Simulated scan of single mutants.
Amino acid sequence: MSAQERRLRVLHLDHTDAAGGAELALVRMLQARPDWTAILQTPPLASGPSVWDAMPPGVPRRAVGVRQPAGASSGGPLALLGFAARLAVQAIAVRTSAAFRTADLVDANTARAAAYGALVARLSRTPFVVHLRDLVEPEALGGAGHALMTRVVLPRADGVLANSGATLASARPYLRPDAIAEVVPSASGLTVGAALRLSADEPLRTVGMLARIDPWKGQAELLEAFARAFAGRDIRLQFAGGAPFGHEAYLESLRSRADELGIGAQVDLLGHVDDVPRLLDSWDVAVQYSTRAEPLGQNVLQYLAAGRVVIAADEGGPTEWVADGENGLLVPPRDVDALAAVFTRLDEDPALRARLSGAAAATPGLLDDLAVARAHLEVYDRVLAAPGRPVP
């Protein structure tokens, strides 16, 4: 029986309640009411507000095992031993849970969840699907994380959902020949076809970056480039995103540096923003400038769908969506002078801004969250239909 002929029972594994890209993507996809029965399972989480509070009320949330703290895979031998012990305990807790026993398929939403999920899958015939939202490289996953991903997770995966072609290419050497592997962009809250396009009659007023506050997301580089191009002008720079993984000190350093550059009064640090479409409608230029290659860059998809003038670093997943000079501008990565020069070019050419805005909104392949969910279901169905799989 195919997944479409009855409601599939999918156990979604995640290891945290921080508002990271993976967690927000899963919330958005399940808010679209996909055609499967979803259960979310996490380790025990701290009390207080959680990204999972936005889950639809019909999605059960189950907590089992032990907490999986951020950064636990880095450090010395004792830290790694503790990390391994937590993974083992979590795997046992998942394997013995009622949610696992009744699931037709397990979907690991993060690399950490995939690590303990793969341990469970090795002791079960339950189909195991892995979301890949990071390049399979030591720089992105850390040394221990990369070893787990390449030696334990990917060799066991029955299916892989990669957020970009670059991400999938980095994983292919470690996949089984019979693994189902597809590129499906993360659910990014897109409203396709409803963009407010910029007019050539309007001045450039606001530049923004939508990304969690993290040194590798490039907020510091954007700050420097903005100061070189727009200091003292009636133009604002807005950073939208929380600091969920212990980067409060970096956030404060951005405030201090903005004051040192003389642009403190032009810079807004907005924190986490729930109404992203409304925020993007207020921006003219939207920037992705991570200091290492992004596997996808959900913010780039959001910028395009909103019809903003998109600037992106010329590497990684964003280059699969942005064609330089056509629907956005690509800038050499880690080059503040080049980024500042692009700002000046856009400031001086309102017709270019208007043209890029219109082309961004017309970018082919942009998917709303329900379309993303349907693409997931197609992959689930193919995994379940693979030879030798038990019929759910």
Results as ranks from 00 to 15, higher is better:
residue 112 R to I: 14
residue 104 D to N: 02
residue 127 P to L: 02
residue 148 L to A: 15
residue 137 E to T: 14
residue 117 G to T: 01
residue 107 D to K: 04
residue 126 T to R: 13
residue 109 N to Y: 00
residue 100 F to Y: 13
residue 165 G to W: 12
residue 155 P to M: 11
residue 63 A to F: 08
residue 145 G to R: 00
residue 109 N to L: 01
residue 147 A to L: 14
residue 125 R to L: 10
residue 98 A to D: 13
residue 94 V to I: 07
residue 145 G to C: 00
residue 118 A to Q: 05
residue 108 A to V: 07
residue 118 A to E: 04
residue 118 A to D: 03
residue 119 L to I: 12
residue 107 D to G: 00
residue 102 T to W: 06
residue 146 H to I: 01
residue 130 V to I: 01
residue 100 F to H: 15
residue 162 A to Y: 08
residue 87 L to R: 13
residue 138 P to S: 03
residue 168 L to Q: 02
residue 138 P to A: 04
residue 79 A to D: 14
residue 130 V to Y: 09
residue 113 A to V: 00
residue 146 H to S: 08
residue 70 A to S: 12
residue 89 V to C: 14
residue 104 D to H: 10
residue 97 S to E: 01
residue 132 L to K: 10
residue 107 D to V: 02
residue 142 G to S: 01
residue 117 G to K: 04
residue 113 A to K: 01
residue 62 R to N: 08
residue 85 A to T: 13
residue 143 G to T: 15
residue 108 A to H: 11
residue 154 L to N: 07
residue 102 T to D: 11
residue 120 V to K: 11
residue 101 R to L: 13
residue 74 S to K: 07
residue 85 A to I: 07
residue 165 G to H: 13
residue 105 L to P: 03
residue 168 L to Y: 02
residue 147 A to M: 12
residue 81 L to V: 12
residue 81 L to K: 13
residue 147 A to E: 10
residue 122 R to Q: 14
residue 166 A to H: 09
residue 109 N to G: 06
residue 67 R to W: 01
residue 142 G to F: 10
residue 154 L to K: 11
residue 113 A to L: 02
residue 162 A to M: 05
residue 82 G to K: 15
residue 74 S to T: 11
